[in-house]
């Protein structure tokens, strides 16, 4: 088991390194010049050249990359052009906001989507289930920038009960969470319904019913336990994706997280900041995936690693 974890960690480190390397090259190939953003609109050609020299961008690409890798292994991710502070520290300063929002959104999603999906599976074919299904398709079809603005208009402008932006009080987390959860609940509840429908019709369920097991135990203990792995995988994947910054929602609600940071970094071609953001969020997302993988054996004895199957 320890061997498996170590191997997976080494793979993860390599993945993160390759991701950051790809981003390093791609942002330099993309159009745009950080010197223009950095030196301001009135800068002369000489100013721009001097700034490029300062930022180390005058060197050829391979030399820049080698310097980047050398610094990376000493724990230095460079200095953000626009913040004039270590890029890693800037990202880490924003990260708690994103993890808070992602955790809040995934908890709300799980708490609503799982019971809703179970309810839909148990009431398949009824009018109320059809209504929930239609609502799910609608929620799934709404882009987040639109649903976010709608929620904002209703609950912060027309009925000013919640703050419109920022994160100064805990009430500020309600609308961004609701915006993220709306889409995720629609997606996850349909997955739960599909999985539950399969397991509620499984032969082992009929067999357990024939032994006198109660309907609630059949639903929650039998069918739910057997649906756990795909549902857990989906929740873990969604959570990992949210840690990369819930970009649209963060921008709509002026949420001071990694998502709005990366938008700003891209606008100003702040290369070190872009690289640091990618490094941190990719590492985090891969770590969450690893934790989900490690959790599988808890939910399904058939995938227990390193345990010989006895016949």
């Amino acid at each position: 088991m320890a061997h498996y974890v170590l191997r997976r960690l080494a793979q993860s480190a390599l993945t993160v390194f390759l991701t950051v390397s790809a981003v390093f090259v791609l942002i330099r190939l993309a159009p745009g010049d950080p010197a223009t953003a950095f030196a301001g609109p009135l800068a002369t050609t000489e100013d721009l050249a001097r700034v490029r020299e300062q930022l180390g961008l005058a060197e050829p690409l391979p030399a820049q990359y080698l310097a980047f890798v050398r610094d990376l292994f000493t724990g230095d991710l460079g200095t953000s052009y626009s913040f004039q502070a270590p890029a890693f520290d800037v990202v880490m300063g924003r990260l708690p906001y994103t993890t808070t929002l992602a955790t809040s959104a995934i908890l709300v999603t799980a708490l609503i989507a799982v019971p809703l999906g179970v309810w839909m599976a148990r009431h398949a074919g009824t009018r109320r289930e059809l209504g929930a299904d239609v609502a799910g398709v609608a929620a799934q079809s709404m882009p987040e920038f639109w649903s976010g603005v709608m929620l904002l208009t209703v609950f912060a402008v027309l009925l000013p009960v919640l703050p419109a932006s920022g994160f100064t009080t805990w009430a500020g987390i309600v609308l961004p969470t609701a915006t993220v959860a709306l889409l995720q609940v629609a997606l996850i509840s349909r997955l739960v319904r599909r999985e539950m429908a399969v397991h509620l019709a499984a032969p082992y369920l009929t067999a357990a019913r024939s032994r006198g097991v109660s309907e609630s135990a059949l639903t929650w203990r039998y069918a739910m336990a057997n649906s756990a792995v795909p549902v857990l995988t989906a929740l873990g994947t969604r959570f990992a994706a949210m840690l990369n910054g819930v970009v649209v929602v963060e921008v709509v609600f002026a949420w001071p997280g990694v998502g709005s940071l990366v938008v700003r970094a891209l606008e100003t071609r702040d290369y070190p900041l872009i690289q640091a953001t990618v490094l941190v969020t990719a590492a985090l997302a891969i770590l969450v995936q690893l934790l989900v993988d490690l959790a599988y054996p808890l939910f399904d004895p058939r995938v227990r690693v390193g345990k010989a199957v006895r016949r």
């Binding site: 499984a202 009929t206 067999a207 024939s210 039998y222 399904d300 004895p301």
Partner: peptide, 22 residues
């Protein structure tokens, strides 16, 4: 009555038990 007065022995034992419970 199920599981008390009357019990079933199912057709296919491989699929008649929940695979994730001992």
């Amino acid at each position: 009555l199920r599981g008390r007065a009357v019990s079933l022995i199912p057709q296919d034992p491989m699929t008649a038990l929940s695979p994730v419970h001992s």
